[in-house]
């Protein structure tokens, strides 16, 4: 999406949803849902639309883990690193996932096919280790499940 198109998206959203300061997080979510990430070049347009300073928007954008400032891979695999999943062998699955998907935790594979990210708790704590694969929850992750995920994200 080009810069002009993105600005149209932002302006249209603000007309529908309002331009109060409390709209900043919902607007950032909307931009990311539409474009996949929030490019730094969009910060001035977002700031202008909500009558905030660029520093203000930058501060919020960089505070929250969810907002991406670079494009993600075509598939996103989020693997839980929290205590309950660790108690069920999560650390070993973390290493196995990095190996099978060919990408380090927190990185996007060079071919742009998959991003592997940590998540701290999906609230499925009695059936871990858990993952979200393109938004789909998966429980009891083992090496066989990782093989299926690796095949899925190859497509």
């Amino acid at each position: 999406m080009g810069l002009d198109e993105a600005k149209l998206l932002i302006d249209g959203w603000v007309r529908r949803e309002g331009s109060g300061r409390d709209r900043l997080l919902p607007l950032l979510h909307a931009v990311q849902d539409e474009i996949g990430y929030i490019d730094d070049t969009l910060v001035p347009a977002i700031a202008a639309a909500l009558n905030l300073s660029r520093a203000d928007v930058h501060g919020v954008l960089t505070f929250y883990h969810d907002y991406r400032r670079q494009p993600a891979g075509r598939h996103i695999v989020k693997l839980c690193r929290a205590e309950s999943c660790q108690s069920r062998g999560g650390a070993a699955m973390e290493a196995a996932a990095a190996e099978r998907l060919g990408v380090a935790m927190g990185e996007t594979r060079r071919d742009g096919q998959v991003t592997l990210e940590p998540v701290y708790c999906l609230g499925l704590c009695a059936i871990g280790p858990n993952a979200l694969v393109d938004g789909r929850p998966m429980a009891r992750i083992d090496t066989a499940a990782l093989d299926r995920i690796a095949a899925e994200v190859a497509a």
């Binding site: 109060g20 409390d22 709209r23 900043l24 997080l25 979510h29 501060g59 919020v60 883990h65 969810d66």
Partner: peptide, 25 residues
């Protein structure tokens, strides 16, 4: 409903209020 954005500290009540207000949590 307001959706969070992946910041654990926003479970702290005053950080949560700042987050609803559109600020860093």
């Amino acid at each position: 409903v307001r959706a969070g954005a992946g910041a654990y500290v926003c479970g702290e009540e005053t950080a949560l209020l700042d987050s609803i207000e559109g600020k860093r949590g």
